[in-house]
Write a protein that binds this DNA or RNA. Structure first.
Lengths: 363, 363
DNA sequence: TAGAGCCTGGACAACGTTGTCAGGTGGTTG
DNA sequence: CAACCACCTGACAACGTTGTCCAGGCTCTA
């Protein structure tokens, strides 16, 4: 009868090794096999000094024959850093976010960190759920493309040391590092470009008004129109979902009616694509400038306001790691320039319009 | 003189709380604050039964006032499952992989798991480094789009219980679940389509020959040509990098020379894009069919062999979770159908070619 | 040859959580 | 009134790793 003097609260029989990680060897197993102490294995695995070449060889052999791989979960628990960062974006399938995510990944890789992405699908609840799940995993930092407008839920996390950077849209109700494109300036320049080519009735089709960039771009549109002394009709403005049906009917609405527009400004890449399709079916040649560059837009001759998605991601990630490396100061706000790329569609003149005397301003 | 009876190996003074996770409260802190035991907090956090409403309320209050969030690293260590899966792909910025990744994410989400992606940049070493890093994080499963041809390095991991599925390209030297598109069949159908429209001299421009899909598509091309009784000249085939310069010069080479091709088959989306650009500058109308659909290809009238990237990702992820749910049996191999979408560029007839008597086969 | 110093290796606790078991309380039943 | 039961709560160990400290063997010097 062994084990008479068990401690008062003996746990049940320990679960067999087979229940965990499908029976993975641990450092203890490696140590036993190599005939050394546990800590020596740890030293070898982490390339720490103080191990004789001979011992190291024995340990390496044991590692290989057992197929050991360090359990980073345990390591994280002990060290307090996970070497991973989280990225919450809208939709990884959107060609705008792919390059952004990739740029973040490259910076993370340079800092030895892995990237966990999640798509919010433009749903604030899902954004919060994702961001908090990443915090529970103890990511070292968080890059968020906001879907919602209230990020106070992140305050405890930030206070607890999770570096946080917002990209593409500003944070709501908290003060934090932010990297944006100049939506306002870009849209203003694009609309001014159309005006310079003789257009007076210009339509604006944008994303939902709860999205910051949509509002900013609309503001750019209004400013350009006002600067040119043009009055804007409500019929020329349409904000809402970027679903193809919605955009298509908006385009058709603006082109019919008593006072049809002669040019369109598309608020983002989704809108541009659908607008181009809608216009392709029309016999009238309508001018178009779109926000965001699109692949093959060069061949289709679509004039765009290009923003650099990769630069957004890279800049945000660099700021994040600056914080992780100890930079603490006031929140930083960066706005990246946009570039107008004339390719033809934005240089179409209105019906009956005469050639313009001045060269259009191209930024 | 306190602490006379310290244990023999007294560790140094414990690091202050501030050094870890930036001073985060733990369940112990919550328990102290709520005046309950540690385990009771755990029960509340995990919604386990057996807690009085009153106790639960006290604990909840303590959680909120402290801003507590469960440390999933510790949880993982204890439970042995991370509820996360890894995806190793080539380049998240490629419009083919964005939707694939997103589809995987959606399936993971439905199973309560997070997704960690990494880009291999088509480098076998980097693929291995990434995959093993993910294994060290103890992801429950791994989806790999192989860059290399030898995946024996994953054997210990798979044996240890990491469910693994290969997508888009088969695994090398190991037997594992695989989800592919029918590259061979798709390419054969595309080339047959060109032949049916009267072409006899057809060029093939593909990716590097070490990539499985590139080879399969070339095989499809050769088979279609042979089936039609056509001899293929070496000058009509070009495999290599998808860098624009390389592809452009391949196109130019095939169109000049004594025996210029009258049609091109482009081996993937990157090649198609560059080929379209190159052909746009030529006055000759050259027929083109591309593998992979591209955004706006409809407007440009590009005939393609479309594969469904999202379906690839979804199918692979579903198979992965089937394994994680206990399915064990022989490795499964799935090949997804491709679809030929005629849009004009593939229906251009060769110079001097007469209308074809038979309807072209469209799959 | 003895003493000092260096190098290597190992024992132990701790990271924050969860599974197991035992103790306590209050109510019901025989 | 005693015995029992159901329910709630908490003590403890364990998950696999790393940081700290000590022990022992070795080399080098005086």
């Amino acid at each position: 009868m062994a084990n008479t003097d068990r401690s008062p609260h003996t746990p049940g029989r320990p679960r067999g090794r087979e229940a965990r990680y499908g029976n993975r060897p641990t450092m203890k197993d490696v140590a036993a096999r190599a005939g050394v102490g546990l800590k020596t294995v740890s030293r070898v695995v982490n390339s720490e000094p103080g191990v004789t070449p001979d011992t190291e060889r024995r340990v390496q052999e044991a590692i290989e024959s057992l197929g050991f791989r360090r359990n980073d979960s345990a390591r994280v628990l002990r060290k307090g850093r996970t070497a991973s960062i989280g990225l919450v974006l809208e939709d990884l399938a959107d060609p705008f976010y792919g390059p952004l995510s990739r740029a973040v990944e490259e910076v993370a890789r340079a800092h030895g960190a892995l990237l966990i992405n999640g798509s919010s699908a433009e749903d604030p609840d899902r954004e919060q759920e994702l961001a908090l799940a990443l915090c529970a995993r103890r990511v070292d930092g968080l890059i968020v493309i906001p879907a919602g407008h209230d990020h106070r839920y992140l305050e405890p996390e930030i206070k607890a040391g999770v570096a946080t950077v917002f990209v593409d849209r500003p944070a709501g109700r908290i003060d934090a590092d932010t990297v944006l494109s100049d939506s306002f300036g870009g849209a203003r320049a694009g609309v001014a470009h159309l005006i310079a080519h003789g257009h007076r009735r210009i339509g604006f089709i944008g994303d939902q008004p709860r999205i910051h960039t949509a509002v900013e771009r609309l503001r750019g549109y209004r400013t350009a129109m006002r600067d040119a002394g043009l009055t804007v009709s409500d019929d020329w403005i349409s904000l809402g979902s970027t679903a193809p049906e919605r955009v298509r009917s908006a385009v058709e609405g603006m082109l019919s009616g008593p006072e049809p527009v002669t040019a369109l400004f598309a608020g983002n890449n989704r809108v541009t694509v659908t607008a181009v399709r809608a216009l392709a079916g029309s016999e009238r040649r309508t001018a178009l400038v779109g926000f965001d560059d699109i692949e093959l837009a060069d061949l289709l001759g679509i004039t765009v306001i290009a923003q650099d998605a990769a630069a957004l991601g890279r800049t945000a990630a660099e700021q994040l790691f600056r914080r992780l490396d100890g930079a603490n100061g006031e929140p930083v706000r960066v706005a990246l320039e946009t570039v107008l790329i004339p390719r033809g569609s934005g240089e179409i003149r209105p019906p009956g319009g005469r050639p313009d005397p001045v060269t259009p301003p191209v930024r």
